[in-house]
Each structure stands twice: as C-alpha cells, then as structure tokens.
C-alpha cells in the first residue's frame, strides 16, 4: 500500500492568465477556448502517484481581479503549496506575480512550496516547428528564472492549451513537499474510489493522474 498524503495548493495570479485552465488541464485533461472568470474561488481535487507516494491535491483556484486580493489571505492560510501564474505575453501579469510571491513569503506558512508558472507558452511558439517566434513573448525565460532563483521557487513555462509542462508542475511540487508537512491520511480505501461529487462525464477527475 502506498502512502497517501493530501496537499493544499492555492493558485494565484492576475485575471485571465489561465489559472482555471491549468487546473482543468491537470484534473480533466481538457481545455476551453473561452473559460468563464472564476468568482471567489473554485475547489477541485486530483490524485497523483509520484514514485511510491500518492498525493491528493486539494486545489483552491482563486479569482484574479485585483479586488479579490482582499479575500486571498483566507485562501492561502494553511496552504502547503502555491502556483503563482502569469501570462508570458502580458508583462503586467509578471509584475503582479512578483507581488504575490512577496505576499506569500510574508504571510503564508513558512515552508510553503511555491512554483512560478509562465502560462500560454503556445502563443510564443510555432505549432509546426515548436520554435519560438520572435516578438511574441513579453516576459523572457531569463526574467522568470531570475525571479525564481532569487526567491527560491520552482519555475516552469506551460501551456494549458497544448498541455505542455502542466503535469510537470504538479509533479515537481509533489516531489518537493516534505513528508512531515503534508497531512497523512489513514483511509487507504479512498485511493481510486469513485468520487460521487465529481462531474458526471469527467473521467480524469476521479481517477489517478498519470504524473
């Protein structure tokens, strides 16, 4: 029997950078061209097997508009992991990401694992060749890396649309979570159990993620 731990993860970042889309990709392996803005917060779960560890992510996806930041402390209290997301084509969203990282370091639990995520990578590459197209991106890889190094964060560029690097982010977070901080759960029967509250035709949500 593998050991199961649950990890509370919160997503933060400017409106429309793709937070909900990253979660939708991770949980249901799906993408929606026009995804409705999140009002307040949405809650989802996904199980992941990493080596011998089974991790149950309890994901809080938050609203991105500035004024919702007033509610954010409620969301990240007790969070063990955070995804700070920006849009690689929107410089303002990177500035916002910087602020979130700062706030998390000041306010969230001390050993929180943070991943910095530059999303919408598909917009800067040629779908045929996979090569970057000049002039498409507004935030360089170096800028992202520099911030991540400075603040001790994991760093990824992703695309919720093409699924590029999405599972990798969560796997990396799962690996980074120290055993003792995640909440142990002694309910082995719940692994792989069908979740009655999961959406009806959602195949991925109730099962295990193939990370």
């Amino acid at each position: 029997m593998s050991k199961q731990t649950s990890v509370k993860l919160v997503l933060l970042g400017e409106a429309a950078v793709g937070k909900s889309s990253l979660v939708l990709r991770f949980v249901s392996n799906d993408f929606q061209e026009n995804k409705e803005p999140t009002i307040g917060a949405a809650f989802l779960t996904q199980r992941c097997t990493i080596g011998t560890k089974t991790i149950k992510f309890e994901i809080w996806d938050t609203a991105g508009q500035e004024r919702f930041a007033n509610l954010a402390p409620l969301y990240y209290r007790n969070a063990q992991a955070a995804l700070v997301v920006y849009d690689v084509t929107k410089p303002a969203s990177f500035i916002k990401a910087r602020h979130w990282v700062k706030e998390l370091h000041e306010q969230a639990s001390k050993n929180i694992v943070i991943a910095l995520v530059g999303n919408k990578y598909d917009l800067v590459v040629d779908p045929e060749t996979g090569e970057e197209i000049e002039g498409r991106r507004s935030v360089s890889v170096e800028e992202g890396k520099a911030l991540a190094d400075e603040e001790g964060l994991l760093f990824f560029e992703t695309s919720a649309k093409s699924a590029f690097n999405v599972n990798e982010v969560f796997t990396a977070i799962g690996k980074q979570i120290p055993e003792e901080t995640s909440k142990p759960q002694d309910e082995p029967s719940s692994v792989g159990r069908i979740d009655l509250n999961a959406p009806v035709d959602e195949s991925g949500g109730a099962g295990n993620c193939a990370c």
Binding site: A15, A16, N34, E36
Partner: peptide
C-alpha cells in the same frame, strides 16, 4: 478580458 468569457 471577460467579454468573451461571459456565457460561452
């Protein structure tokens, strides 16, 4: 940002 994300 929200216009096309309203009732898609």
């Amino acid at each position: 940002k929200d216009l096309h994300r309203t009732f898609p």
